[in-house]
Each structure stands twice: as structure tokens, then as C-alpha cells.
Design a protein around this nucleic acid. Structure first.
Lengths: 247, 247
DNA sequence: AGGATACTTCGCTGGAAACCGAATGATGGA
DNA sequence: TCCATCATTCGGTTTCCAGCGAAGTATCCT
């Protein structure tokens, strides 16, 4: 057996060892839904102390099985790529079962709409970003990884269509050159686990929606309430269909 | 998380743990060529003592990753099914390499043609069985697993075509009712690692080929020499193309 | 029948790693 | 600015298992 082959075997053994620990296997299975989870959540899934979970997550990340995205004081972990999912998928098949994901225990009202720093987050925000991309108002910026393969959230740029649309709405999309902040970028949504719109444009948009009474701040927390006006306007301006906020 | 999900995670962890040990990973990678290897060979691949390898192989077999076939004093191990190979394949892909197999160190002359107890084995025998199946002289017996999924080698039966063919050749395919021995069955070939023809019919066929001088016994070991006559006859009677015996 | 070969079982040892709690950064919210 | 929360690092304990050799069983080869 030649040296190169031995390397492959060793690599396989390392990968398998990373999955072999029941706590880590639980984490990885939970991540099979393709979303990102925080370290604390994964500690819950794994049923271990936070410190133990942290060590597990470090190992999985170092080995390249997971991808880590820091956002504020949270660390979001997701599967690094499709190949990792493929390995887990094939093992699940061998185990004779189908993948499931863990249940989210986030309060429904917070999941629906809330502020994320200075921009909108939650179900509404995720749907809005996807709609803006679908309508062609926004486009991924050149050189930006759409699927955040690099671990960075993608950048977006306004299209001509988007500029016209926001102008017509009365949104001053011409951001003041506020320091070096990114203009428009994806921001990982902690309830939906996919991106919503962040950056300067996201902040402008939230300010606009609050000013126009599409959204109302709830007292005491980051929850936002979508008004009837807001619901109608989102539907009218962006053809956005939303489910009723549960809870 | 519900109970059923926890079971899946645990199963995955167990599978991964079985692959995680470098020695076992080496064995499994060697088995990726789909052939069967003996415990001793796999101990060599794993670079461990025979006793250690035996424990590893037991674990892999108990977990359902390997299949064990006893033949004489040898134990042949192979991957249990395609799903296992799929898991390893995906891990190899993740490791960024392609599978290779270990080199066989069997003397070439022995690999080509030899006796296996009382029937023919080696490259010639494997090719012959496949040709008999292809020509329709033999067919898998009903209720017999063709791919030895049950761990048993498959049984075969002579078709009408086969009976006519052997009659014309002068092979007395009507075996004497020798105890309870199987009439025609696959027999794992230790150099080719796929089945050749065993059982009463296999024994009859070898006797016939020796009598007709298609094969000659070499002195001192189980090696058999394919004569020029034998080569011509195999080609004429069975349309069998053979590579030249190397070594 | 006897000797060689293939494999397994047993008992023991050593090293690797999973685990937790406490202490220490890092960040957001009031 | 202070506090709460999220996450990581550190130290010490415990559990697990891979490893070997020796002895035992099965099978073959002559």
C-alpha cells in the first residue's frame, strides 16, 4: 500500500471519528436541515454542557465538517458543504431511517418579525429578501458567494429596477456614506436560519417601514408588529404573500 | 427531540465509530473493490496482529457492515451491501481522493488455474462460470440469492440448453446421487474474489477436463496448467477468450 | 495420523478522549 | 457604565477500547 492511499484512509478515519461521538452525531443530524444553529442550541441537542459542546464544535469546524459564522455574541454553525451532508445522508440511509430536524422553540411572535440591530428580521424579512431578489430589485454582487460558501454572508447590489422601485416608494436608497459599513448584505436570521437583508439598505428599509407605520415596535423587546397597512403594502408593492403570524 | 430520532443518531454514531478506527478504515477501504479478503490479508492491510484484526472484523460484521463467508479454514470478508460502499465512497469524496485497492501478491500461475478441492478455480474458472451463465447453460436456481446477499453462495441449475451442450461434449452431467452434496453452486475464488463453479457439477467438469487433457496437474501443489488443446477447446466449445497466463 | 496453517478467545495494559464545573473573554441591552 | 448572556479555555476525573501475546479450535495438506 502506498503512502497516498494511507493518507486517504487516515482522512476517512478522522472524518468518521468526528461523527462517531453520539453528541456530535446528534448535532450533525440536527444540522442536516441545512440551517444554522447556535452553539447553545447545539449543546441542547447534544445534551451536554456548553463547554463540552464547544469542544465538539471546534473539532467539527477544524476538520472542515462545519462552518462557523460569528454574529454578535452568537456563533452559528452549519454544515460546511453538500459533501458533508451526503456523507450523513448515506449513513442515515444505511441506518435505515430518514432525516428529521429538531424543533425550534422560539416564540412565534418573535419569529415572525423583529429587529436585528437596526434592520428587520424574522419570517417577514426572509420572505422580503427573497422577493426582492426574485423581482430583480436586488442582485448578488459580483465576487460574492451567493451561498456563503466562504463563510461570509453575500453582498447585494441594487439593480436599476430596484433603484426605480425604491424611488417610487419614497425610500431614499442613496445611503449616506456611513463609515465603511456594507451597503446591502445577507444577514443570518436566527429564527429562520436563512438570510434576510442587512447592511445600510436593510437599516434604511426598516426605518422607512417604521416611519410609514407598516411596522410598530412592541415595548420591552425586539418584537415588531406587522400592521394591517404594512401587510397590504407589502403585498401591493412587492407581491409578498405572508402567512398569519402564529402565537 | 423524539425517541425515534435519537435512535437514528445513535445508529449513525455506531456506524461512524466502526469506521473511525484507522485499522478498520484501512480494511474497509481495501474492501471497496467489491472483492472478498481473508482475515489474514485484512490483518496485513490493517497492520495489526491477527487477534486484533479478528476483533475488528467481528465488530464490523456484527454491525452489518461486512459479510462473512467461511470456506475451509479461511474466512472471507466483503462489504455487506451497496449502501456501505456508498458511505465509504462519500467519505472518500469528502476526503478528496479516489478509492484504490490493495495489490494482490498471489503467484500469477496459481491465480490463473488451480484446483479448489475437487473442482477448477482461478481466472479460468471464474471466466468459465460467467460464460456458462451468459450462454444460458446455467441459470441461478430459484430461491437462491444471486449476489449472495444472504451470505450463502448461490445455487445453479442446468438448463435444457446446458444439458444438451454437456451431452454433446461427452460430459456426464447426471451426477451420481453423492450424499447430500449440492449439485452446482458458486464457490468463492480466493484469487479472483468472485465465484467460480463448485459442487458436483464443478467436480465432474474438472475431472472431464483433466481426462481430456485440457488441463494438466502440476506436481507438488494445486496449480493446473491449461494446455494448448484446452485453450482451443474452451474457445471452441464455450466461446471463451482468455488472457495469457502471466508468470 | 501428524504437522502446519487460519482464525478466534482471553486477560491484561496503556493511551486517548469525553465529560463537567469554574474561570475568563466577548457582546448586546438597559 | 453595568449587567446578563453567549461562548471558550482550563484542569482533573473517568470511561472506553485498541493493542498484544498466549492458548485454544478448526481445517488443510501429506
Amino acid at each position: 500500500m502506498d503512502v497516498e492511499q494511507a493518507d486517504v484512509n487516515l482522512a476517512i478515519a478522522q472524518i468518521a471519528a468526528a461523527i462517531a461521538e453520539p453528541a456530535r452525531a446528534r448535532m450533525l443530524c440536527a444540522l442536516m436541515d441545512g440551517r444554522a444553529y447556535t452553539a447553545t442550541e447545539l449543546a441542547t441537542v447534544a445534551d451536554t454542557a456548553a463547554s463540552t459542546a464547544s469542544a465538539h464544535l471546534s473539532r467539527l469546524t477544524d476538520l472542515g465538517l462545519l462552518h462557523k459564522v460569528s454574529q454578535g455574541r452568537h456563533r452559528y454553525f452549519r454544515l460546511a458543504n453538500a459533501e458533508v451532508a451526503q456523507v450523513l445522508e448515506s449513513m442515515m440511509q444505511l441506518a435505515g431511517q430518514q432525516p428529521k430536524s429538531i424543533q425550534s422553540t422560539t416564540p412565534a411572535s418573535l419569529r415572525f418579525a423583529r429587529s436585528c440591530y437596526d434592520h428587520l428580521a424574522g419570517t417577514v424579512a426572509v420572505a422580503l429578501l427573497q422577493q426582492l431578489l426574485k423581482l430583480g430589485w436586488l442582485a448578488p454582487a459580483p465576487g460574492s458567494d451567493v451561498l456563503s460558501a466562504s463563510g461570509q454572508q453575500p453582498d447585494y447590489q441594487l439593480t436599476a429596477l430596484g433603484k426605480a422601485g425604491f424611488s417610487a416608494l419614497g425610500v431614499d436608497y442613496q445611503a449616506k456614506p456611513q463609515s465603511k459599513r456594507r451597503y446591502a448584505c445577507g444577514c443570518l436570521d436566527w429564527s429562520e436560519r436563512t438570510a434576510h437583508l442587512g447592511g445600510q439598505l436593510g437599516a434604511l428599509l426598516l426605518a422607512f417601514m417604521l416611519e410609514k407605520q407598516w411596522l410598530r415596535r412592541m415595548l420591552g423587546n425586539r418584537e415588531l408588529q406587522l400592521t394591517d397597512l404594512g401587510k397590504r403594502q407589502l403585498n401591493k408593492q412587492f407581491a409578498l404573500q405572508l402567512p398569519a403570524p402564529k402565537g
